[in-house]
Simulated assay, not measured.
Amino acid sequence: MRYMLLIYNDEAATANAPRDKTEQVLAAYGAYTEALKKSGAWLAGDRLRPTQAAASVRMANGNTNVLDGPYADTKEQLAGFYMIEATDIDTAIEWGGRCPAASTGTVEVRPIWEMTEYLSEK
């Protein structure tokens, strides 16, 4: 089954981190990504640009409403993701716990609802 590991961090703290700390974090993510790839669990993953570069889109009464930045003002922002293959939720949670963000922010582990499952339920 595929899972998303959604990485949430305080982007202001990340932006203001000392250079040596940033380099340590990037090295930790490099090692984590390599471990995922070597295990065969890695399917995709990337870092996201800061929320100032985001736009939120909603449709209301046939009109497209665009809001610059994220929709929610929260302490932690979605900073990146990994899509992994795991045999079960416990294995996915183990990978989530190994993610560097788990020690500084939050890693949300969410199963992907495969469209083939949805279509077969109808």
Rank of each mutant, 00 (worst) to 15 (best):
R49Y: 11
D10Q: 00
T14F: 11
Q77G: 01
M115W: 12
E121N: 13
R110F: 09
G30T: 12
E85A: 11
K122Y: 05
E11C: 03
E11T: 10
D46T: 12
Y118P: 06
E114K: 04
V57H: 07
Q77D: 10
M83E: 07
R2P: 12
A101W: 03
L5V: 08
A102Y: 03
M1W: 06
L78I: 07
L5T: 04
A27E: 11
L43R: 11
G97V: 01
G105W: 03
R19S: 10
T22H: 11
A54P: 07
L5A: 08
L43S: 03
K122M: 14
E114D: 15
C99D: 12
Q77I: 03
I84K: 05
D88A: 06
V57I: 15
A55F: 11
D88L: 10
G96I: 06
P50I: 07
A72M: 08
A101P: 05
I7G: 03
R58W: 00
I84C: 00
E11G: 09
K122T: 09
A41V: 00
E117S: 15
T91S: 12
P111Y: 02
A53N: 10
A27R: 09
Y32M: 06
Y3Q: 02
D10V: 00
P50A: 02
T87A: 14
E108R: 04
T91W: 01
K21A: 15
A86Q: 01
A54C: 04
D20I: 09
N9H: 13
A92H: 00
L48P: 02
T64F: 10
A79F: 09
E23G: 08
M83H: 00
M59A: 15
L26P: 00
S103W: 09
A27H: 06
I89Q: 12
T116A: 15
R2M: 05
T91D: 05
N61E: 14
T33N: 13
N9R: 15
G80K: 01
D90M: 10
A54T: 07
R110P: 05
P100M: 03
M4I: 09
M83N: 05
M1V: 10
R2I: 04
A17R: 05
I84G: 01
A27F: 06
A12P: 01
S103I: 00
A102Q: 04
T64C: 14
M83K: 06
